[in-house]
Structures are given as structure tokens and as C-alpha cells.
């Protein structure tokens, strides 16, 4: 690990002002950052520890009936929170589908959103990687990959957002609330927060130097049936090959409102309003869910390749099947749990 200076921030103003300097990183749960520092992938000259700042570890009701989740709330506390379990079950499920008990105890809400992709080439200093070293190339393309993106990629980068929590935050229309040095903070949707890689995959978000996530705000509970379906290489403690967060409201055999977000397939939690509109007012059917999958995956390109013949990878097909399975799971649970108003079996 490279040597670094350590600064324990007193308050948000101190944190954002100190972190505005070049080569400075915020640190909270430290699980991803310390790992990358050990690998030499991240070499900050200074860490600004925000864990002692008062008031950032709370989950509070907002005036409109939503939820404000402080950036320091740990994944464990968020997944176990009674209100989240009852009103936003897709969020609990997504968090519990990720990492291990040990990591969830340290990992924080803001840090989870900002975690780095687990592309093996990003983590390997011997390999070219445009995210780590702009202009050096991308070793991930054209070979066998599993944790790569198929949507929102560019010729420069196919790294996927690796998180589960963010996919549920995405389907719940979460907004990130920030603090900035010397000016008011701002509110960003996840689509505004994450940049697509384009020519500069090293710039992953629109956050400015010193800008800190202070909270994530959820709108009032959406009701309906919540499903988080994750496909991975082992049954527990593995990143998603594909994941799907679904919130579906089914009444009298018709979909009143359907939302779907994909994980493990794009540089950010992925939604497409056209796919969701296509569901509105329709009865569930194979044809409908095929159409939803087709809309979501219309632009999908798999830049990995299996074997030397260059045959395309598995991911587009897996995503299609996962989308259909998650939607049917939501329909079956909706029908099985008639009478309730919200939750997993609503």
C-alpha cells in the first residue's frame, strides 16, 4: 500500500474542504478502498475519514412519507431496518443478496453506491485498463468475461456496476443528496450520478472534487410486490452475473404499474422507461415479458467472447431469461398474496 496521510473529519464542511485537494479520497467502511489500495489500483495521498461526522448514520422519515438514509448507515443496519423490510423489501433483499455478513457490517450506503467495478483487468496492474489508466486500452474485450456490462458500454470500457443495493435504489427512484465544498449540496438521481464510460471510463460519476454523498432519499413506498432476483456463479457471496429488481402492482389480472432495474449488466443500475410503459395496463403474458426484455436489451452488445472462435458471450441470453423469471415471480407472488397492501407478497 502507498503511504498516505490520514485526516479525521470533524464535520461535513471540514470533510468536503479537505477532500477537494488532488489525490484525496473519502473513506468510511473502507472495504473496497483498502482492498484496491493493497492491490496498488488506488493510491490516494490522503484519506478523509467521515465516520465520526455526527448525524450521518440515521434512517429518518421524510416529510412526504419517504425515507432519508444517512450515508454512514451500514448495509446490515439498512437491510434489517423494520421500515425498510416492510415498505421497501426489494432493498433489504438486494442488500442481503450481496457480500458477506462481515462486509455488510462495515460497508456503508454512500460507499456501496461508489464502489468500483470488479473487472479483473481493472484490478490487475499488469493489464491495460482505460478506467485505471486512460488511453492504455481495455484487456477485458474479446476474451471470456463474466462480470462485464452489455449495456451502456463503450469501445473503451465494459466494466459493470457490481452492486446489488444500487439496483434496488434505482428501481425505488432513489435520489442522492450531496454536500459540496463552499456551496450548497445537490440532489442527483442515480442516472444523473453515474456517467457512462464513453471515452473516459476513469470518470465514473459526476461528483466534483470534495463532493460527498451525505444521504440517499427514497420517495414514499411504491407498494406492490417486490422481487430481487440475482444470478451468480455460486449460491452466496458472489457478484451478480445478472440481477433484476422488480416492483409490480397487479390488480384484477392487469399490471397497474411495473418497474424493473437490471444489475450486473451496465455501468450503473439500468432502467428503461419504455420497457416499463409497455407493461402498464397489460395482463401478464409470455409475449408481454418477452417484449419487456426485448426493449431493455435492444441496445445490448456483448463485447466479451467465449473461446477462440469469437462466439459471443452468454450474458444477453441470461439477462433475457432473468428478466422474464423475475417478472413471473412478481406476478405469482402478487396473485398468491392477495389482500395485503405492500411487501414481498402483496
Amino acid at each position: 500500500m502507498n503511504p498516505f496521510a490520514y485526516h479525521r473529519a470533524r464535520d461535513e464542511q471540514d470533510a468536503t474542504a479537505t477532500a477537494a485537494d488532488d489525490g484525496t479520497s473519502f473513506v468510511a467502511g473502507a472495504t473496497n478502498l483498502v482492498d484496491l489500495m493493497k492491490l496498488g489500483v488506488k493510491t490516494p495521498g490522503r484519506l478523509v475519514d467521515i465516520t465520526r461526522i455526527e448525524g450521518l448514520d440515521r434512517i429518518e422519515r421524510t416529510d412526504d412519507g419517504g425515507l432519508r438514509i444517512g450515508t454512514l448507515v451500514t448495509n446490515s443496519d439498512l437491510a434489517a431496518d423494520p421500515v425498510v423490510r416492510r415498505d421497501y423489501p426489494v432493498l433489504s433483499r438486494a442488500i442481503l443478496a450481496g457480500a458477506s455478513g462481515q462486509l455488510r457490517n462495515k460497508a456503508t450506503t454512500g460507499g456501496n453506491l461508489l464502489q468500483h467495478p470488479r473487472c479483473p483487468y481493472f484490478q490487475d496492474l499488469a493489464m491495460p485498463c482505460n478506467m485505471r489508466e486512460p488511453g492504455s486500452g481495455c484487456a477485458a474485450q474479446g476474451g471470456p468475461m463474466r462480470l462485464h456490462a452489455i449495456l451502456g458500454t463503450s469501445a473503451a470500457c465494459i466494466a459493470a456496476h457490481p452492486g446489488d443495493m444500487g439496483v434496488a435504489m434505482g428501481v425505488l427512484d432513489a435520489a442522492v443528496e450531496t454536500a459540496r465544498p463552499g456551496q450548497e449540496g445537490r440532489s442527483l438521481s442515480l442516472e444523473e450520478l453515474y456517467r457512462l464510460p464513453g471515452e473516459r471510463p476513469d470518470i465514473r460519476t459526476v461528483l466534483e472534487p470534495g463532493e460527498m454523498i451525505r444521504a440517499v432519499v427514497l420517495p414514499p413506498p411504491p407498494g406492490g410486490t417486490h422481487v430481487y432476483r440475482k444470478v451468480r456463479d455460486r449460491a452466496s457471496y458472489a457478484f451478480a452475473l445478472v440481477s433484476t429488481a422488480v416492483v409490480l402492482r397487479l390488480e384484477d389480472g392487469y399490471i397497474q404499474a411495473g418497474r424493473i432495474a437490471l444489475g450486473g449488466v451496465a455501468p450503473r443500475p439500468w432502467r428503461n422507461p419504455h420497457a416499463e410503459e409497455a407493461m402498464t395496463g397489460e395482463p401478464p403474458s409470455e409475449a408481454l415479458f418477452d417484449r419487456v426484455a426485448n426493449i431493455l436489451l435492444a441496445e445490448a452488445v456483448d463485447r466479451s467472447a467465449l473461446g477462440r472462435d469469437g462466439a459471443p458471450g452468454f450474458k444477453i441470453d441470461l439477462a433475457r431469461r432473468t428478466i422474464r423469471a423475475a417478472l413471473w415471480q412478481a406476478v405469482e407472488r402478487s396473485e398468491g398474496g392477495a389482500g395485503k397492501t405492500a411487501g414481498e407478497a402483496a
Binding site: 473513506v27 483498502v34 475519514d49
Partner: peptide, 12 residues
């Protein structure tokens, strides 16, 4: 609470 001590910076 259980944590991975290898990813925990003592100074924090």
C-alpha cells in the same frame, strides 16, 4: 459486530 480485520484501518 463481525468484520474483516484485514480491511480495517486501525487508525479509524
Amino acid at each position: 459486530r463481525r468484520v474483516n480485520s484485514c480491511l480495517t484501518l486501525l487508525c479509524m
